[in-house]
Every structure is written in structure tokens, then in C-alpha cells.
């Protein structure tokens, strides 16, 4: 029985099963959108925290690190409460839409991107601060230099965020509802199909997800190797 499930799974992948690719495509769309927004938020937050000195900075970084470990299910619940009909954003009618899933993923991965960005930028700032003072480098140029010189670490950070977003199941299940042709993504589909005993389609999705994860990991390794080659770690 499992053997035939495997064969069937590869059949689904090989024949470019329409349902399967619809799910894959939605997953990628949702996660990439969430990732872009999170980078847009997380880079400035992390960089500002690293460069500015203000009271309560330690509190902020501690908070950020704590947010990094938020359980996805809890994030899902909170976003659900915010978006549900009686919640503060209920009128927008976003619950059980891809937008809701994007929001949940943004809440999940922005702290990760911001915290990792902070670590990278903080190290660089400690290293470059006096030099930039000495050379009279103005803040905009300093920031663009930090971003450029941290490029390899930042790419790794972004990839880590994507990996987390695409493989996450708890939050998107709660706020997306796993509705066929609307909010069904790879992880929620795998959970559903497995529980229904539809092992072939679950396996096919699993293989695709695994491949995606391997590609991301491969990219991370490639970036690291390149950075090390130039001594830019």
C-alpha cells in the first residue's frame, strides 16, 4: 500500500497535477509576499536598534528575541481574534483569505528578520563606528555601507525567514482555514490529506515541500561558502 502511494505521489508530481501545483503556487505566493513585507519592516527595525543609542534599547532587543520564539499557533490565534468578525479588524472581512495568512506569517517572521538583522548590524556597527566617525561618514552612507557589507548575512537571514514561512502550519491553518482552491497551502494540505488517509497527495506535497526546503538550505550554504571565500563572514 505505501509503495503504491509513493508511485502515485511521483505520478502526481510528474504529470503536473493541477491541484498540486495550485497549492504549491499559493504557498509560494503567500510566503514570498509575507517575506517581502517582513524584510521591509525587519531590516529598518534591526538596523535602527543597532545604530541608535536610546534608553530602553536592551528591553527592545530582549523583547525582539522573545518574539522570535513565538509559537505559531498562538500567533494564529491572535491574528484570528484580530480578524474575526467581532475583532477590531473584523469589518475588513479578511479571515479565511490568503491576506490573513500573509498577515500571520508577517507577524511570525518579522521578529526573526529584525532580530537577526540587529545581530549582524550591531556587530558591524561596533567594528566600524570609530572609523566612520574618523572619516566623517554621514548616517545615510553609513547605513548603506552596513547593508552592503552585511549582504551575505542578510541574504542568509532572508532565506531563513522564507524557510520558516513556507513550512509553517499552525498559524495559516487557523487564519486561512485550509479552504480548497482558496487558502489551501502545502502544509495545511499535507495535514488534511494525511488525516483523510490520502497518502499519495500528502506524500507528493511533502516531496515538493522538502525539495523547496533543500533548495533554500542549499542557497544558504552557497551564500555562506561564498562569504567565507572572500573573508566576509
Amino acid at each position: 500500500m505505501p509503495d503504491s502511494a509513493f508511485l502515485e505521489a511521483f505520478g502526481l508530481i510528474a504529470t503536473a497535477n493541477a491541484d498540486l501545483y495550485e497549492i504549491l503556487w499559493l504557498s509560494v505566493q503567500v510566503s514570498i509576499t509575507a517575506l517581502l513585507i517582513s524584510v521591509f519592516l525587519g531590516f529598518p527595525i534591526g538596523t535602527t536598534l543597532a545604530i541608535l543609542d536610546f534608553r530602553g534599547k536592551n528591553l527592545c532587543t530582549t523583547l525582539l528575541n522573545a518574539l522570535m520564539g513565538l509559537p505559531p499557533v498562538v500567533v494564529g490565534l491572535l491574528v484570528y481574534l484580530a480578524l474575526s468578525r467581532s475583532g477590531p479588524f473584523g469589518v475588513l472581512g479578511l479571515l479565511y483569505t490568503p491576506t490573513a495568512m500573509v498577515i500571520a506569517q508577517v507577524v511570525l517572521i518579522t521578529p526573526i528578520i529584525a532580530a537577526l538583522t540587529y545581530q549582524v548590524m550591531d556587530d558591524l556597527h561596533r567594528e566600524y563606528r570609530e572609523l566612520f566617525l574618523s572619516l566623517n561618514i554621514q548616517l545615510p552612507k553609513a547605513i548603506s555601507t552596513y547593508l552592503w557589507d552585511a549582504r551575505y548575512s542578510l541574504i542568509t537571514t532572508v532565506l531563513a525567514g522564507f524557510g520558516r514561512a513556507i513550512s509553517e502550519v499552525g498559524a495559516v491553518m487557523i487564519v486561512g482555514g485550509n479552504i480548497d482552491h482558496l487558502t489551501r497551502v502545502m502544509t495545511t494540505a499535507i495535514a488534511l490529506e494525511t488525516s483523510k488517509g490520502e497518502l499519495a497527495i500528502a506524500l507528493a506535497l511533502g516531496v515538493v515541500l522538502l525539495t523547496l526546503a533543500l533548495i533554500v538550505n542549499g542557497l544558504v550554504t552557497a551564500v555562506r561558502t561564498r562569504a567565507r571565500k572572500y573573508g566576509y563572514t
Binding site: 566600524y128 570609530e130 574618523s134 572619516l135 557589507d149 573573508g231
Partner: peptide, 25 residues
């Protein structure tokens, strides 16, 4: 106009000539 050479060299993560260009006002 002042400049300083640090006891521990601080160099940017880029090529030798780009490091020079970075400081070039």
C-alpha cells in the same frame, strides 16, 4: 581635516581599492 590610522586596522568588506575609494572625499 584630520585622519587617523587605528592600532587595529578596520577595513570594509570589499576590495582593497574600494576601501580606498570609500574614504576618498
Amino acid at each position: 581635516p584630520q585622519a587617523m590610522v587605528f592600532q587595529k586596522p578596520v577595513l570594509l568588506r570589499r576590495s582593497v581599492i574600494d576601501n580606498l575609494q570609500f574614504a576618498d572625499r
